[in-house]
Design a protein around this nucleic acid. Structure first.
Lengths: 228, 228
DNA sequence: ATATGTGAAAGAATTCACAGCA
DNA sequence: TGCTGTGAATTCTTTCACATAT
């Protein structure tokens, strides 16, 4: 085990906690607002946002009431300042450095993923243990030896680690990076993980989503639509 | 547009609908039960399952009470029959054929993904429009021209389409496959999608998960753990 | 003693519906 | 009129606590 020392927690940017379900929709609002800003639309109503996300307008207003109130009655929300608020709420006004562990098919896809820039995130390192993969180039990135992660993290500061290893290695990898002070993980492996308090882990599980999809397809009563 | 004809909806396997939150946990229960079966453990208590999923035992019992009751008081649940029940509830007692659209980094990762077998799913086709990608081999699969999808689907029957294209093409791809009678989609693109009733779409959005993660990291009050 | 299944209570999230401002 | 922000009502989810079965 590693010895531990305490550093000050970062200042919380918001007083009232955002409900989990609201939080899960904030990225979608942000995406829509980015599109609207691009399109030059200065304001947007809860109704318009609701339609784009296929949810109710009451839902949108309730969600956005968590932000500093910047809707104007009769007018709607200012796109630019609402976007700014949500970006701040998500912590995306500052950049986040990512590392990917596992340079297999999924890890490689993550390393190449273009969409991170929109979230002010960037993959800064890729790790693997396989000698055949270490040294491979992916865009600007070169796969590094996971066993040298400590020294690499001393030079390239990393905020979040994306786990794209076989699931039976996920816990060991997380333990390793916990030792380097990493406090945020995104796990692509369908494995149960134990972490100490103060560490945040989220899962992306494609199989789980598909299994829910198959259930829903079986329960969907509508007749098949077949082109003739 | 296409002309439409009606076919009978498949028989619903369950009378009472499964609550959405319960459904979202069924794949995780199933994963644990597969592990327990492998390990040869004949029965499991709600407490044990709860611990593995970091939820409460009451939650587990409530969730499992949706299944045909097969817990035995004082003893726990029979691993094998519970697994069977959940597998049936998810519709995984029969195989599902997948197609991937988009042979970029993410589509390629999906095409290679080994984990689908556990869910009785298999990728049977990969499509793209890029002439450089059409013809590429990925394992047993060869990337086909998306414009020939209709004739390919006439030979290889497909149940679910995974969308791994740039997000601005997601809607067009879905519309195309709707015309071939596909009623289930998993969308990896962060795009809003319109589908007719009777069609099921689910999203996997890595950026959204990361944005929620950054928010949670900022809100987590615990001091940093730094190894010395 | 052990552990399920479930009413009843508590807690969250969503929708309703409308007061209030532009 | 158009649209937000929010109490109140409703619906969904989780937890509690215990009767019941092994």
């Amino acid at each position: 085990m590693h010895e531990l020392e305490f550093k000050m927690a970062p200042t919380k940017p918001f007083r009232r906690p955002i409900p989990a379900e609201t939080l899960s929709r904030l990225p979608a609002y942000r995406k829509q607002l980015l599109d609207l800003l691009q399109a030059g639309q200065p304001t947007v109503s809860s109704r318009q946002l609701a339609e784009r996300l296929s949810i109710s307008d009451a839902q949108v207003r309730r969600d956005l009431s968590c932000m500093a109130l910047l809707g104007r009655r009769g007018l709607g929300y200012n796109v630019e300042s609402l976007l700014e608020q949500i970006t701040r709420a998500l912590g995306l006004e500052r950049p986040w450095a990512l590392a990917v562990v596992g340079a297999g098919a999924m890890g490689t896809a993550l390393a190449h993923y273009q969409g991170f820039a929109r979230s002010n995130m960037e993959v800064r390192a890729v790790f693997d243990v396989d000698p055949h993969k270490i040294g491979q180039r992916h865009g600007d990135l070169i796969v590094s030896d996971l066993r040298q992660a400590r020294s690499i993290l001393a030079e390239v500061s990393i905020d979040i680690v994306l786990i794209a290893t076989p699931s039976n290695q996920a816990q060991a990898v997380i333990d390793q990076f916990l030792g380097y002070g990493i406090r945020g993980f995104l796990n692509m492996a369908p494995a149960s993980i134990e972490v100490p308090p103060g560490v945040t882990v989220r899962w992306v599980d494609i199989s789980s989503e598909l299994e829910q999809l198959t259930h829903m397809m079986l329960m969907t009563p509508t007749a098949n639509l077949v082109s003739t």
